[in-house]
Design a protein around this nucleic acid. Structure first.
Lengths: 337, 337
DNA sequence: GTTGCAAACGTTATCGGTTACGTTTCCAGC
DNA sequence: GCTGGAAACGTAACCGATAACGTTTGCAAC
């Protein structure tokens, strides 16, 4: 039963119904020009054989497929949130969704993955694509919406207000009395990483606090990349009283490093992340972070893409969604020596 | 830049390189029989045009595509866990993954979705498919592995030990002193729902406790379906001292209903779920539940499918993975009146 | 100078479905 | 009986890539 024979094609249906494949195609697509009796014949043949049109063959011939694509580098917690939002936006819209993924879960991955996948899909299979956190610029013959674009990307995009979020973090830390604040940056080619660092720098400058370049570590959003950087920051004699990591994954690793070194959080060190992934609320202590609803990012991206594909998008081509500071147990006023 | 012109085809490359499409194909696929100078010509043309082979055209012609599919009804938290596991298993295996999804996030969906999607993909696009929690039996011309199969499904499958998990829950509640234990069942066509209910019944019977049919509500795994059922159970004068819901989603809704009715959990009522989704640990109180690593389910399913596609699977066609009772704050001994 | 053989490359049928176009059928209108 | 025109349906080209097959070329052995 599970191992059905050869797949049923339109040809099989046509032969059984005693008509040409053209007629079957017309019936399947509800086109004009088929007699009622022939329609019944064909439908019954379809029923009998359990025929279902091949997505591949259809999309090769047709320009519209009513399938949208989403290209991602990996599946992490936030990916699921994005997908939920995308699916909600596509609900009863007549569009199906194809998610295309490849490669290492956390490891290295070859440059240009987003462009390769995009090109393979968008020529034919999909009417348009969402690209999740690409590392570089993307181009496509069909509409594209980018979530968390690369720096200087021109493609339509949806992103969180990273600048405001990072500013709020630093103001929160300054308000608590911190002056020496370390920063662990993200992959520099991403606009989000750049904006978060910019928020960190400008908020400090605004408060008249000098930016100490030696307090900035260059990570790449990969949690593991934060380990040596956190260790370097916390090993110093004049270590910072607070560390702001540009992603929750890196912040959680920083918490681990602090624990290893016997540094109490938040007593001796405050730690802040960015993203508000589910794991952050479960950390010990719970992580202060910036919430950027990945669900809404996905939702807005899908809504935008839908309109772009239908050629009826009127709004701006870059959407920026608000962020929200979530204060939890990993931040406190610095100990007075 | 984002709106590139017409897609680049193999024909464009052939024309620019001054060779036939056949030669381009041979170069792309690294086949024998092309001179070094021609290879260089073709490669440079590919580079210049930014050519990428069309997944659709390739899969239509070829029998092997090195793409595996996963068909799902919706994206929920556990879907992401499964996907993480699948991707880990596919890491550096040479297989890409396509996830196909459609339809309502939580709402109704037409019967037979799994079969339709499967047929549309498996004829051509994918070498094999994983089907996530289908509602009925599936058949396909390419290998299929089902996660959480329908009852009486013959297809190769991977599932958690739902019977043992449910038994452990009931024994835990019995051990705490509960005797009136309500049950909110899942979609009855699923093997998992059946096994969880069977575990509930047999554990009670084993302990000599009569199974009261009026304490069993018939849900369908959809969180919303639990609301009226929980309300009915908790509104009764002789309400149960504990409720075991067949999924965390339904258990969390039960917690909400209890809160609405002013019933203290775990003081006046114990609540247990099944699945251990991330939200359960964050609930107030944190939910006692059964962990069935969706990550491992995905991992094992992908491993099995990979072997099936390569025709080298030796193991059993039904894999059952262990479950683990996770005791948190939502269960306690019943109050003595 | 043949012959033999393999390398190198082009031609073309093919996958399954769609569609432009052509052909046949049927009936109303004169 | 003839014409016009629309409805009904088949034929074949086509989408992009692959692979079986045929053809040409290059080179070594006899």
């Amino acid at each position: 039963m599970a191992e059905g024979g050869a797949p049923v094609t339109m040809n099989d249906v046509a032969r059984l119904a005693g008509v040409s494949t053209a007629t079957v195609s017309r019936v399947v697509n509800g086109r004009y020009g088929v007699s009622a009796s022939t329609i019944a014949q064909v439908r019954s043949a379809i029923e009998r054989l359990g025929y279902e049109s091949s997505l591949v063959a259809t999309s090769l011939r047709r320009s519209r497929t009513n399938v949208l694509g989403l290209v991602t580098h990996s599946f992490q917690s936030y990916t699921a949130e994005v997908l939920k939002g995308v699916m909600e936006a596509l609900r009863q819209s007549g569009f199906d969704l194809i998610v295309y993924a490849n490669g290492d879960l956390y490891g290295t991955y070859s440059e240009g993955w987003e462009q390769r996948h995009l090109t393979r899909l968008s020529g034919t299979l999909t009417d348009g694509c969402i690209v999740l956190t690409p590392w570089g610029e993307v181009r496509s013959s069909t509409p594209v919406v980018v979530i968390d674009p690369a720096k200087d990307s021109a493609a339509p995009s949806v992103t969180a207000d990273n600048l405001a979020g990072a500013t709020a973090v630093v103001e929160h830390l300054l308000g608590l009395g911190h002056r020496r604040i370390g920063f662990i940056a993200g992959r520099s080619s991403l606009a989000a990483a750049w904006a978060r660092e910019e928020g960190y720098r400008s908020a400090l400058a605004e408060a008249g606090v000098r930016v100490d370049p030696t307090l900035i570590g260059r990570g790449d959003f990969n949690p593991e990349s934060a380990v040596p950087l956190a260790r370097a920051l916390l090993d110093r004699a004049d270590r910072p009283t607070a560390v702001f990591a540009a992603s929750d994954g890196m912040a959680l690793k920083t918490l681990e490093v602090a624990k290893d070194l016997g540094i109490d959080v938040p007593g001796d060190l405050s730690v802040v992340g960015f993203d508000n992934i589910p794991e952050s609320a479960l950390a010990e202590p719970a992580l202060t972070t910036v919430d950027q609803s990945m669900y809404r990012l996905g939702y807005e991206a899908a809504r935008m893409l839908k309109s772009l594909v239908s050629g009826e998008w009127e709004g701006p081509s870059h959407i920026v969604l608000p962020t929200r500071l979530v204060i939890r147990g990993s931040t406190a006023s610095p100990a007075r020596p």
